[in-house]
Amino acid sequence: MSYLETTAEFYAEAAQTPQVGLCCVQSSPLQLPGLKISEQMQEMNYGCGTTVHPAELSNEPTVLYVGIGGGLEALQFAYFSRRVGGVVAVDPVSAMREAAARNLKLAAQENPWFDPSFVEIRQGDAFALPVADASVDVVAQNCLFNIFEPADLSKALQEAFRVLKPGGRLIMSDPIATRPIPLHLQQDERLRAMCLSGALTYEEYIQQLVDAGFGQVEIRARRPYRLLDCQSYHIDQPLLLESLDSVSFKVEIPADGPCIFTGKTAIYMGVETFFDDNAGHILQRGVPAAVCDKTARKLAMSNPGDILTTNATWHYTGGGCC
């Protein structure tokens, strides 16, 4: 049995009997005015973070959600689009699609603004998304892509890139590893299905996004997720997994490399009232300006006495000068 078959079997079981404690279901979902979420839907919140960032969801976007789970985030996305077919949710597991459909019917009873037609559930998988080229504004997935082996992850990211409109956004939440996962854990198909052994390091994860063609990546959050202990996982030292929320933009990769925003800022401290690097970055004296990692590095190297660059906060929601 392949790891994808193991994953399908695992989530078919989870669809029929909610696995409380799988991923981060113990955390509270995003609260929105007028949105009620059933206990059953919360129990099936098989994610490691959130992909629902209101600032990314203006103007009633068309959203493609990959891996529907219990339907919670599909419902949250529908909150912003509120129209027939505004959200397309894709899942290869029939039991999961059926469970999500039941949960969304219940949601319609509890939320007067919601109609099940707002979420169109389709059979399909991340490697062959059942939508046309350049047809959606947002692609989202929560704690799914980390399950894939690197070659399959590359396929999934290329598919997401294909279906996004120019300027569209890939919103993801996945575990990442603070050091490479030992091979014996990577090869454990059930641990991989449980989002515990397929995680890449941060550097590998971001490189996969850039290789797929995304020219700008913004980190929304990075926080502890799970600790793999020595006794249970037969490793020499504990291995921390982190949860990474990111937004990747379908824009051209600049000639000098992609823009990766991790919450760094640049602060001009020279004698003039402002600093202009003649590359689109104007810094007022003493005022922190959000910059991408690439720009922070360049400014620090070229003006070490005049510009202070701060460390990554692993949180960025716009406002940069790049």
Rank of each mutant, 00 (worst) to 15 (best):
V90K: 04
P254F: 03
L183Y: 02
K105Y: 08
N142F: 00
L57Y: 05
C48Q: 01
L244D: 10
I235T: 08
V210K: 08
E252S: 15
W113N: 10
G71C: 06
V119H: 04
R223F: 13
G34F: 02
A128V: 04
D115F: 10
V287E: 12
E242D: 13
A212C: 05
E13W: 01
I307M: 12
E272A: 13
V291K: 03
T51W: 00
P224W: 07
L106P: 01
I171P: 09
P258K: 09
A212I: 07
F118S: 02
I253F: 05
P130Q: 00
R169Q: 09
V251Q: 09
G71A: 09
I235D: 09
L209Y: 06
S38G: 14
S302Y: 12
Q158H: 06
W113A: 08
A151K: 11
F249K: 12
N111E: 06
A55S: 15
S243K: 01
N146T: 14
L308Y: 12
S117I: 02
Q123K: 10
E13P: 05
P180D: 10
A78T: 10
R97S: 09
S243W: 05
L35T: 02
L30C: 11
Q158L: 11
S232D: 15
T265C: 15
D245R: 02
N103T: 05
P180F: 09
I37G: 04
K105A: 12
I206L: 14
L185C: 03
E110D: 10
T62E: 08
C195G: 07
C292Y: 12
G21R: 05
L196S: 01
G49T: 01
D211T: 14
L228P: 00
A151F: 02
A134W: 05
